[in-house]
Design a protein around this nucleic acid. Structure first.
Lengths: 128, 128
DNA sequence: TATATGGTACGAGTTTATTCGTATAACAAT
DNA sequence: ATTGTTATACGAATAAACTCGTACCATATA
């Protein structure tokens, strides 16, 4: 088993739709399809199908009280981002989170970003 | 097209084998299989096949001068990590690298890690 | 009521990833 | 030379992800 089956991380297509839902808030298939169509060429029923699969996987919840179901993310953007990061740390950084952080920081990092991260480090240190 | 086809990011199985190669250095299929077998149950020819596919994709190079081919990563661990990070930043952090970094840093970060990252921030600031 | 419109469900085709069995070649040792 | 061991190559089966056509149901409106 070279593939890891333990967790339920969204696939690429699913992540694309989650990003739209986080941005838009709860939305119908039509609204989501219109939004995704702005940047990508894809069919209405394709988006519908993926949302149905996401519903089975519990990646989204949906309100079926109206004819056009209204979809919403099951988890917040923050929770999902953390989960994806944890996965990447495990699979590509030998489990070391700080190794990942230090790899992410390179010479393209702006002064503002550096200052923001410094502030966060200070806050973290206060807590412990 | 909800899936991104632009770049050549290693699949999970491929990343598993790359991790072994980075750790071991150049190795034969048998050596790699023995290593992966320590933690995962998988067949010899499965490992062979994946390495052959990785060779087609240019994720590894191989020395065919001996009967047992010797495989080595085509790219360094650092380059691959950076590429995976870039991909994740794009797909889950709206392109914002510092957002990713700040999400990675949470209360589980140790004092040592915080200090290491501070040092790196200082170095980065000197350069620019 | 009949018809157009717009919604979900669902089956099936396509592609990519993973897995492994089998054929076959190379080499070593009898 | 024959036999056993250990390689690679390759085809095919399976699974997951993605895509879309078609059927069929709701509702609005002529």
């Amino acid at each position: 088993m070279l593939r890891d089956k333990s967790d339920i991380k969204p696939t690429e297509a699913e992540l694309t739709l989650l990003n739209i839902l986080w941005k838009m808030g709860p939305a119908t298939v039509r609204q989501i399809h219109e939004n995704v169509s702005q940047t990508q060429q894809t069919g209405y029923t394709t988006v519908l199908k993926i949302l149905q699969i996401m519903h089975e996987k519990a990646l989204v919840i949906r309100d079926e009280s109206n004819r056009a179901h209204v979809y919403a993310p099951a988890n917040s953007e923050v929770v999902t981002q953390s989960s994806l990061l944890k996965d990447l740390v495990l699979k590509a950084f030998g489990g070391s989170k700080s190794k990942l952080v230090m790899r992410a920081l390179d010479d393209s990092t702006s002064k503002e970003e550096i200052e923001d991260i410094r502030k966060l480090l200070n806050e973290l240190e206060q807590q412990s």
